[in-house]
Design a protein around this nucleic acid. Structure first.
Length: 546
RNA sequence: GGCCCCAUAGUCUAGCGGUUAGGACGUUGGGUUCUCAUCCCAAAAACCCGGGUUCGAUUCCCGGUGGGGUCACCA
């Protein structure tokens, strides 16, 4: 089993065994009182504590909790990798939970894309919406009744309150706080409303939220397995919204309730969550639940060291797949961003990382996601393959039957000789294209270069949020694009010719939207970005010389 | 701005009081190869600053600086 000596000698205690963190543990720093360990007996809400203990005795339970709001993010894979490495190392389990409580940002298809991307990488979870498990359902949208019941429980216990403040009032409040440079946050306006008044407002079904009643004094401290003790004064903590006016929970409530009900023992997530962890700790305390162990990983960064974002970097796992990175190589690269092998080896498999995994070998400085090493390794790995394996991979990943067929359909009418297929189809492959030879095509009769760059930029932006554009299928994409033109006062032919050059790197190409779709969303995005950069440079050069 | 986290070459990292500060990618130079890619050799390149603690700090503590995160009815 390979358990270390220090983690042996398990007793039947309420606290599950845990690996000893590198940073010295401050005894009882955040340990709940013994009364808090007892399964709570608050009546109608099932606490699930029995399952909690049973599971904990079998090894850690961790979770990844992606939000289905867009393309599968490399950050999700990064966090999943560390969760999995830890869980597997200790014979535990990983849960995949879909955090779909934001209806406005929900993106259909995103959930499946997440499953596929993680599966491609070989990051396998034990329980999830797609494969069930004893702690389901694993989609938060399917657990709404629970969150409401728990919120009620807090309300009854006087640990939360209903807030009827309007959006307008909140906006005005924030504005005023900013003007005086005061601490931002909810002012507790509804915190002590007269119960009769609350009853009246509820009776007339006035929209409201439920907020946590955060203590105004004191300090909330928790232990981070990678960073030691972290504390924040309670005055810094807002009266966090738990239940939105649409009846959906916020992340804070849902994540605490689910982590408890799903018997999660170790919460391993990105550093961005550190400042909200005290809110979660307060919630655990309010419910009287056992705290999980927290581990906050460093955040993946852009080259400028800001948090990795799609504005500055491709962040979709699909992009890296489309560019032809090998999943094992990609995962290996992610692993080296923060983890190192005891023997200094840099090339390792997932299994080797699992076997060697230890928190003392995890670095929390946020690493820059810089592809140059990944490229070198990927080349090494391609070279190391047999010709047969390489061929198979090319036909699977680059010339897959569906994609190759679509390419041929587009190419067939446009060539005179079979042999022209490959040069003609070149635009569908490779990352960026060379605009030097077609630079003139960016010059429109009635538009300045700056205007052209601006419209491309707006288009790139719009394509991310528009539901039709997001499908990335020819018809909806065209419908969206035409609508975009009218909204921006552009003629379709003007915009479309810019798009054609930007995406294909040529002035002649198959129908624009077919071309875009076959190139793929990620490649289009990258080329569009590059084209914008190129056109801006042209504009700058021009204004300098003219 | 308040709070919180972080700090070894351009990038990812090793180091856990005494080292010529190690490796990888990248860069530069050279070699092999008809070219390219590969491969081989070599080089340049880092402990953010200031105080402590210590016989001795890259390493421990404090402060500063810098970077990042967070301050939503988003997660």
């Amino acid at each position: 089993m390979g358990r270390s000596a220090r983690s042996r000698g398990r007793k039947r205690t309420v606290v599950p065994e845990r690996p000893v963190p590198r940073v010295q543990r401050i005894p009882d720093a955040a340990a709940p009182s013994s009364s808090a360990l007892r399964p709570s007996a608050h009546g109608e809400v099932r606490s699930g504590s029995g399952l909690w203990y049973a599971a904990a005795a079998m090894g850690p339970r961790v979770r990844i909790a992606p939000s289905p709001t867009g393309d599968p993010h490399v950050g999700t894979a990064y966090v999943a990798l560390f969760n999995l490495a830890f869980a597997r190392k200790h014979g535990g389990e990983m849960v995949l939970r879909i955090e779909d409580t934001d209806r406005s940002r929900f993106s259909p298809g995103s959930e499946r894309a997440i499953f596929e991307a993680l599966t491609w990488l070989g990051l396998e979870w034990d329980e999830g919406p797609d494969r069930g498990g004893a702690f389901g359902p694993y989609r938060q949208s399917e657990r709404l009744a629970r969150y409401r019941a728990y919120a009620d429980r807090l309300l009854e216990a006087g640990k939360a309150y209903r807030c009827f403040c309007t959006r307008e009032r909140l906006d005005a409040l924030r504005k005023e706080q900013m003007a005086r440079k005061a601490r931002l946050g909810y002012d507790g306006h509804c915190r002590n409303l007269d119960p009769a008044e609350v009853e009246r407002l509820v009776a007339e079904s006035r929209p409201h939220v439920v907020r946590l009643k955060v203590p105004r004094t004191g300090r909330t401290v928790f232990h981070d397995g990678l960073r030691g003790e972290i504390g924040i004064d309670n005055v810094e903590i807002d009266d966090q919204v738990l239940l939105k006016s649409d009846g959906y929970p916020t992340y804070h409530l849902a994540n605490v309730v689910d982590d408890h009900e799903m018997a999660i023992t170790h919460v391993i997530r990105g550093e961005e969550w550190i400042t909200s962890t005290p809110k979660h700790v307060l919630l655990y305390e309010a419910f009287g639940w056992q705290l999980p162990e927290f581990y906050h990983l460093g955040l993946l960064r852009n080259p400028d060291r800001s948090k990795l974002s799609k504005r500055k970097n491709p962040v979709s796992i699909d992009y890296y797949r489309a560019m032809g990175y090998l999943p094992g190589t990609f995962l290996n690269y992610l692993g080296t961003l923060g983890f190192s092998m005891p023997d200094g080896r840099e090339r390792f498999t997932l299994q080797e990382m699992i076997d060697a995994f230890d928190w003392s070998r995890v670095n929390v400085g946020g690493p820059v996601f810089d592809r140059s090493k990944l490229d070198a390794w990927n080349g090494d790995d391609l070279r190391a393959m047999s010709a047969e394996a390489f061929e198979e991979l090319v036909f699977d990943e680059v010339l897959g039957p569906g994609r190759w067929r679509r390419i041929l359909e587009l190419v067939q009418p446009r060539i005179a000789r079979l042999d022209e297929i490959v040069p003609y189809a070149a635009m569908f492959f490779g990352e960026l294209v060379d605009y030097e030879k077609v630079a003139g095509a960016f010059r429109l009769k009635k538009r300045s270069l700056a205007e052209s760059a601006a419209i491309l930029s707006a288009y790139l932006e719009a394509i991310e949020s528009d539901p039709e554009a997001r499908t990335f299928e020819p018809e909806p994409l065209e419908a969206f694009s035409r609508r975009f033109c009218t909204e921006h006062g552009w003629k379709p032919r003007e915009l479309f010719s810019l798009l054609r050059v930007a995406v294909a790197g040529r002035t002649a190409a198959p129908p624009l939207f077919d071309t875009m779709v076959v190139c793929g969303k990620d490649r289009c995005r990258a080329r569009l970005k590059d084209a914008i950069r190129f056109v801006r440079a042209m504009a700058a050069a021009e204004s300098e010389s003219g």
